[in-house]
C-alpha cells in the first residue's frame, strides 16, 4: 500500500500534551516529509505557533471542533494538500498528521479519511495516537466520556508529564489506561525515548508487508489484550471492558463478514474497538482485521503467522456489551457454515 499516504491522528484531552508530542515527533528526521493539519477550538489558535514550523505543508483548521462542525473542511484541506503536491507546488509529503482538538470524538475524523470518495483513493488511515496527561488524566477520565473514548480507540498511547506527576498516581493511571485499552503499546514521555517507527510506521497496513517486526508487534498487542481478561472492569467508565475470544480451526470469511457487519450495525456505538488475527478457510496465512466502532479497515492478508498459535484471536473493547453473548453469537453464526465451500467450487449464478 506504498502509494497510499498514511494519515495519523494525534488526539488526547485538552492540555494533555498533543502539541508537545507532535513537536517532538516532527523534530525526528524520519518525519521530515510530514504534512500537519491542526484543528483548534477557539477564536485565536495558538497550537500552530507552538510547533515553531510554519510552512506550506502546515494547515490550520480554525473554525471549530473537527469532529462535529468542520468534517467537510478536513476533507477539503487534505484534498487541497494532495492537489498541490501533485502539481508540485509544495514539497512532496509522505505522511499527514492531524492534531484534533482535545474535545474531539476521534471517530468522525477517521470515518472522513476512510470514506471520503476522493481521499479513499489516495490516503489510508495510520495509527491513532492518544496522549494522556499523567497529572490530570485520572480526573479527566472520570469526568469526560470523550477522554475515555480517545483512550479506548487508540493504537498507541503516550502518557505525558510523568516527570512532574506523583509516582503513585502515575501507577494508578497506568493501570486504568491499560485496562481501558490493553492492546495498545504505551509510552511514557519522561522516561524513555519515543520510537517514531513503532509509534507511526508499524500500523495495520504494515502487516501486509514482508517485514517481521510489525507481525511480532501485532501478535504481542493481541496477546496483551488476551492477558487483560482477568483484570475485569475499569473504574473509569465502569461499563467499558476488554476481552478476547479464541477459536480453533478455520473460519468462514463470508459468514464472519455477515456477522461483524450485523454486530457493528446494531451495536457500533458500543464496540469501541475490535482487532484480531483470523485463520480463514482456504488461506495459508492469517487475515488481520481492525475496526473502530462502525469503521472497519480493509482486511490485511498477513504474509506469515506471527507465532505457532493457529487459532483465530479477536480482542474487543466494548461499552456495556457482554462477552458471553458476543462469543455465543459468533460461534453460532460460524457453526451454520460447518464446512466452508472449497476455493474452486463454482456456484451457478
Amino acid at each position: 500500500m506504498a502509494e497510499f499516504t498514511p494519515v495519523n491522528l494525534v488526539t488526547g484531552f485538552l492540555g494533555s500534551g498533543k502539541t508537545t508530542l507532535l513537536q517532538r515527533l516532527l523534530a525526528d528526521p524520519a518525519l521530515g516529509d510530514t504534512a500537519v493539519l491542526i484543528n483548534e477550538f477557539g477564536e485565536v489558535g495558538l497550537d500552530h505557533h507552538l510547533l515553531e514550523r510554519i510552512d506550506e505543508t502546515m494547515v490550520l483548521l480554525p473554525s471549530g471542533c473537527v469532529c462535529c462542525t468542520i468534517r467537510g473542511e478536513l476533507s477539503e484541506a487534505i484534498r487541497d494538500l494532495h492537489s498541490r503536491r501533485e502539481r508540485g507546488e509544495i514539497p512532496v509529503f509522505r505522511r499527514i498528521v492531524v492534531e484534533s482538538t482535545g474535545l474531539a470524538d476521534p471517530f468522525p475524523i477517521l470515518s472522513t479519511v476512510q470514506n471520503d470518495p476522493v481521499l479513499t483513493h489516495h490516503f489510508r488511515l495510520g495509527n491513532v495516537i492518544t496522549t494522556v496527561d499523567a497529572v490530570n488524566g485520572a480526573g479527566q477520565l472520570g469526568r469526560h466520556p470523550e477522554s475515555v473514548k480517545q483512550v479506548a480507540i487508540a493504537d498507541r498511547l503516550v502518557l505525558t508529564k510523568t516527570d512532574i506527576a506523583d509516582p503513585v498516581s502515575v501507577e494508578t493511571l497506568l493501570r486504568d489506561v491499560q485496562r481501558l485499552n490493553p492492546s495498545a503499546p504505551l509510552w511514557q514521555t519522561a522516561d524513555r525515548s519515543l520510537d517514531v517507527d513503532l509509534l507511526l510506521a508499524h500500523d495495520h497496513f504494515a502487516l501486509g508487508d514482508k517485514a517481521e517486526r510489525p507481525l511480532r508487534w501485532f501478535a504481542e498487542e493481541v496477546a496483551a489484550g488476551r492477558r487483560s481478561t482477568a483484570t475485569g472492569r475499569n473504574r473509569h467508565g465502569d461499563s467499558i471492558r476488554s476481552f478476547s475470544l479464541a477459536f480453533e480451526g478455520q473460519l468462514d470469511w463470508t459468514m464472519f463478514g455477515v456477522w461483524l457487519t450485523m454486530l457493528l450495525h446494531c451495536h457500533g456505538e458500543a464496540v469501541l474497538r475490535v482487532k484480531g488475527i483470523l485463520n480463514v478457510a482456504n488461506s495459508e496465512t492469517p487475515v488481520a482485521i481492525h475496526g473502530v466502532q462502525r469503521l472497519v479497515h480493509p482486511p490485511i492478508h498477513m504474509t506469515a503467522w506471527p507465532d505457532d498459535d493457529r487459532r483465530s484471536r479477536l480482542v474487543f473493547i466494548v461499552d456495556g456489551l457482554e462477552r458471553g453473548s458476543i462469543e455465543r453469537s459468533l460461534e453460532t453464526f460460524l457453526g451454520v457454515i460447518a464446512s466452508p465451500l472449497p476455493a474452486d467450487a463454482i456456484l451457478a449464478p
Partner: peptide, 29 residues
Amino acid sequence: LWAAAEKLLGRRCDPLDPAVINHLGPARG
C-alpha cells in the same frame, strides 16, 4: 443490508438476540 432490513421490518436486527441465535442452531464445536 442491515439498515434496509430494519426499515422493512420496523425493528432492530440484533445478532446477539437469543431468538436469532436459537434460529441458527447450536454453536459449532
